[in-house]
Design a protein around this nucleic acid. Structure first.
Length: 399
DNA sequence: TCTGGGGTCCTAGGACCC
DNA sequence: TCTGGGGTCCTAGGACCC
């Protein structure tokens, strides 16, 4: 019996925002289009051909491409298009892991008998996205997530690239190190300084050398990727770990009242989104960018998770107040707020002694739930039982 | 290129506990 | 009195991704 070979598809919509605009406004098709106001959020392939890319300033983009058409973003339309595409992903396989609004991994390993070979599945996926949603999508197929993602990027635009099992290193090693997921400008520079420009050269290095160059985390990560070792499964259960919002302020001087008004707006936006998502959070993070573009973060962890506007506002105000002297001298060009340590708003844990027989104690626990939430059954209810141990006498200094 | 807005993950030190 | 290891939580910064 043949072992089922892992087959992962990475699907990535091309120039997503710009493609939605060209789909919805036929006069934009075939033209250099960017989405965004002051800054390019997305560029069509026609614009990219002039060297326009994100996150370039609008002025620089116009200098490169005099006939550039700039359109304001319509986020609602992008969210809707994304939902339609993800619906097709989920009809293809239940094993879908979304990475962003326009990108996902699909595990199609177990589908050979039902839907055919991975390449046939990917071809059909691309056809459906084109016919049903009107967008071009690039697809990479490989045995690992990492390589599937590299393949879809190499296959762009509107391409399909499969890396057949056994040929991975032949494909990978000639590529420039910048293609590796997790290699940005800083890591690329460190490697270049040592004459390393290709993935193959990285693969020739012993792991300890990479660790010495880049630190334990990055070094080991990069070593594994260069040898195409990536054991991560497609994870369907990922949840958001933070919710935030930020606002650039330009360069003008700001009064403390101005800043407070911005802060109120941020807290209002973020807390609304938390309530809509049924999430509460414990850690409030204030993000600052100063006149010289250096950045700082300040955080505070609350005793209890919350989604209440006033509680969050008070916490972030306290954080901001402590920074006012520096803001006065250096100026501030960005304020951001994000809430982390997120929890499900409707989950509650109660730990109460219960010997497994005394029904009254269980009722007492449920009464506490009732008192706090006005109901004894909220969404999914899970009862976790742990054996009750007699309280052992504790002596100080001993475990 | 004078610089958006949304995120993720990792590291490191200090406090605190056992 | 001094010494030790391991774990978790909190805070801050930084690299990276789309």
């Amino acid at each position: 019996m043949p072992v089922t070979e892992t087959a992962i598809i990475h699907a990535d919509l091309d120039s997503f925002y710009a493609s939605v605009e060209q789909r919805d406004h036929p006069h934009l098709r075939g033209k250099p289009v960017v989405v965004g106001g002051g800054v390019v959020l997305a560029a069509s392939y026609e614009a990219k051909a002039f060297g326009v890319h994100t996150p370039m300033g609008g002025r620089a983009a116009r200098a490169l491409c005099p006939n550039l058409i700039e359109v304001p973003p319509r986020f609602d339309a992008y969210v809707e298009a994304s939902k339609a595409v993800f619906a097709i992903f989920k009809e293809t396989t239940p094993l879908v892991e979304g990475l962003s609004i326009d990108e996902a991994f699909l595990d199609v390993s177990g589908l050979r008998r039902v839907s055919g070979e991975p390449r046939a599945i990917a071809t059909e996926l691309r056809r459906r996205v084109r016919d049903e949603v009107g967008l071009a999508i690039s697809v990479g197929i490989a045995r690992t997530k990492f390589l599937a993602k590299v393949a879809s990027a190499v296959g762009k635009p509107d391409g399909l690239l499969e890396v057949p099992p056994g040929t991975e290193l032949d494909f990978l090693h000639p590529l420039p190190v910048e293609r590796l997921w997790g290699v940005g400008p800083v890591t690329a520079r460190k490697l270049h300084e040592r004459g390393i420009t290709t993935v193959g050269q990285v693969a020739e290095l012993p792991e300890p050398s990479l660790v010495g160059m880049l630190g334990a985390g990055s070094g080991r990560h990069l070593f594994a990727l260069a040898h195409n070792r990536d054991p991560r499964r497609v994870d369907t259960g990922r949840r958001r770990r933070s919710i935030g919002s930020q606002q650039a302020l330009g360069r003008g001087p700001r009064s403390v009242d101005d800043l407070d008004a911005v802060l109120v707006g941020l807290v209002d936006r973020v807390s609304r989104r938390m309530r809509k998502a049924d999430r509460v959070g414990r850690t409030v993070v204030l993000r600052l960018r100063f006149g010289d573009f250096t950045r700082a973060t300040r955080s505070h962890t609350l005793a209890e998770a919350t989604d209440e506007t006033l509680v969050l506002l008070q916490a972030v105000r306290t954080l901001l107040r402590a920074e006012i002297p520096r803001l006065r001298t250096d100026g501030v060009t960005l304020l951001g707020l994000s809430i982390t340590n997120l929890q499900d708003a409707k989950a509650v844990q109660l730990a109460l002694p219960f010997d497994g027989k005394d029904r009254r104690r269980l009722d007492a626990a449920l009464d506490q739930v009732q008192a706090r939430f006005g109901t004894k059954a909220i969404g999914r209810t899970t009862l976790v039982a742990r054996p009750l141990r007699p309280e052992a006498p504790r002596l100080p200094g001993h475990d």
